Amino acid sequence: MPTWVPGAAGSAFDVDNLPYGAFSRSGEDRRAVGVRIGDYVLDLAPALADEVFASGSLNPFLARGRAAWDETRRRVQALLTQEESRGTAETHLVPLAEVRMHMPFEVADYVDFYCSLEHASNLGRMFRPDEEPLKPNWRHLPVGYHGRAGTVVASGTSVVRPSGQRAPGPVFGPSAKLDIEVELGFVVGVPTALGERAGSFADHVFGVTLVNDWSARDIQAWEYVPLGPFLGKSFATSVSPWITPLAALEHVRVPGRAQEPEPMDYLRRAENWGLDLAMEVRLNGEVVSRPPYRGMYWTPDQMLAHMTVNGASLRTGDLFASGTVSGAESGERGSFIEMTWNGTEPIKLANGETRTFLEDGDTVTISATAGGLALGEVTGTVKPAR
């Protein structure tokens, strides 16, 4: 669609995108919800005369459901494309350079999955070289764990190097194997009652966000048997300040990857919810990997079905993530443990430095594109252990 907003037409954030976020103007305490259009934020509460966007959190809007999400999108697109609406809407455009972005929604629960065949196989080969790379259950269900909602933070928040018990020994101290995980997150709007299963994926999930599930591999390796991830994961998970609605991703929906054996009935796909996203990882500004999301083995509709098949309820603001996105090639791995094969093959950077895992002061930025559209970046800088 054409738009009258300066510089927005044909950009990665034109009217076909319109991600939602929470912002405040420089020097003001008031937080509000807006959509990004080009290099501006449209302040939705005054633009649409709707106080649901004045709360500074997306949760009240998320709870309204699919019909309201779609109607709001149509209204916003009309404001930004019709010349007769320009006089009203233009007064509520705020340059991005004049805003501070915040956590876009209040996270109710956080679940992280393990849906990349390549990532799971790489870690299996690394840590169980004398066994099959995949555990027997992996091709039958999307494996996941319940994370810590209270440590999900907005992009730009510094990440303090965690301390904990590490093998061998064990010894206590700061993690020496601080890592990232490139992931795609899914934000739930419409809840379910305890004891019932979720319905259609698009009836519950509002949109997507980029996720960096920071991981302390040495802490994780010592603690994860027998109950799985805990302190090695719970210290920080970063998300983009922008939530891209599913409606903006119609053009990149693809069939999910072929699955063998065929999943159980409740996991069989009814629609195409594979997503053809090109992701990128930058370390201190230098591209070190380009993971392809399209090749993920388990799709988000299957994640949602499995997460609720036992009657576990959904809440508005729930976040569930894909797990590390990794491809088949060495330049497509979504974690440093894979990029460096657990530290045995250091990455060589353009400035002559090498990395196995993250050092204090390192900044990691994850970005993604969906066709010609961009998802909001997620970034974080490592601070020394306290």
Rank of each mutant, 00 (worst) to 15 (best):
G173M: 08
N310E: 11
V159C: 05
P46L: 08
L42M: 12
Y266D: 12
E132C: 10
P2K: 15
S85L: 12
M279A: 02
T308S: 09
G232M: 01
V41I: 15
M126C: 00
G317C: 08
T363Q: 02
R125S: 06
S158A: 15
I347R: 00
L141A: 15
F186N: 03
E131P: 07
S367F: 08
G185D: 02
R197T: 11
V143C: 10
E271S: 14
S322D: 01
I37Y: 08
E84L: 11
A8L: 09
P291H: 00
D179Y: 02
Q220D: 04
R386Y: 13
L18Q: 05
A97S: 15
V288T: 04
V287G: 02
V254K: 09
A108R: 10
E223Y: 03
P255C: 07
N122C: 00
E359C: 11
V378S: 01
E332C: 00
I347H: 01
I347N: 00
G7C: 09
S313Y: 09
E106L: 11
P133D: 00
R315K: 13
V33L: 12
E271P: 05
P291E: 00
D16I: 10
L79P: 14
G65M: 11
N284P: 07
G34P: 10
I337C: 01
E132P: 07
L184P: 09
S26I: 12
L375Y: 07
V153I: 09
P6E: 12
T365M: 05
E71T: 13
I180H: 01
R253I: 14
H146C: 08
L194R: 11
A278T: 14
V225S: 08
E98K: 13
A236Y: 03
T381E: 03
C115P: 05
P292S: 05
